[in-house]
Amino acid sequence: MSTVQSEASRGWFRALKGIRGLGISYAITVLLWYGLGLRMGPDIFPDPLRTLVAVGKILTNANLIKHVGITFGRTVAGVLLSMFIAAAVVIAARYWSPFRYYFLKVFYPGMRAIPPVAVALLAIVWFGLGSGTVVFVIVITVLPIYMIDLWEGMKVIDSTLVEMATVLTSNGTRILKKVVFPMLVPVLFASTKLSFSVAFKLALVGELLGATSGMGFMVYQSQQEYKTDMVFAWTFLLVMLVVFLEYYFFDVAERKYLYKWQTEK
């Protein structure tokens, strides 16, 4: 009984130590931020309190908060579109050898080398100011992440499972849907997690250059009006969004669903 109690108290102690560690880290960050704010002044480097007030302004104003939704929507659209395009391209490259050469020698290296800013400027010419440009910038930059992950993932898929399925059916689409795609779920998950954090930053660049709405546009507008506290607040919100997705949404989803793909006992 005493062993159980001491185990439990050790668990509590570890948890408290963890919380305390995290608290100290956050406190140091806020203090540094506060110190820099004091030294450089509110117009150059707004302190945490001023930033929080600005965040409050955004969160309580429906006209401002809608820009968070717009950026989020564009990011999700860009990431999903990239995923579908990459899946189609990689499957074509895997099962159609003439395209495979083009994919490996031209398409993939070319896509990786394209600078996002140049893409954004061209997209403004092609699509005008708005969501089309932002989504396009995200797709062009995120596509190579999915393509390389899926390409490598396809190389290591368990061919014995595909063979098992081919004895059951000759229908290639059914095999893709029920065996190949599910096998790629962990790869897609990892790519999506990485893509989201990249895509949010790209959305900001895209909106800054080629849109009249969204968080990127609001950052630009705030900077033009010398509202540095609002620039900080929009950036802070974006960081919080990325942190929330990465450490809460994706981590929880990983724990809840992805364990099924583990093959080890």
Binding site: T160, L161, E163, M164, A165, L168, T169, N171, R174, I175, K178, V179, P182, V185, K260, W261, Q262, T263
Partner: peptide
């Protein structure tokens, strides 16, 4: 098969229904 070739993300029952879903 010699090695069971089960789909790791499906339960035992779902691995069996898989054969019917495919054929």
């Amino acid at each position: 098969w010699q090695d069971p070739r089960l789909l790791p993300w499906r339960t035992a029952l779902q691995n069996v229904t898989f054969a019917l879903e495919m054929r």
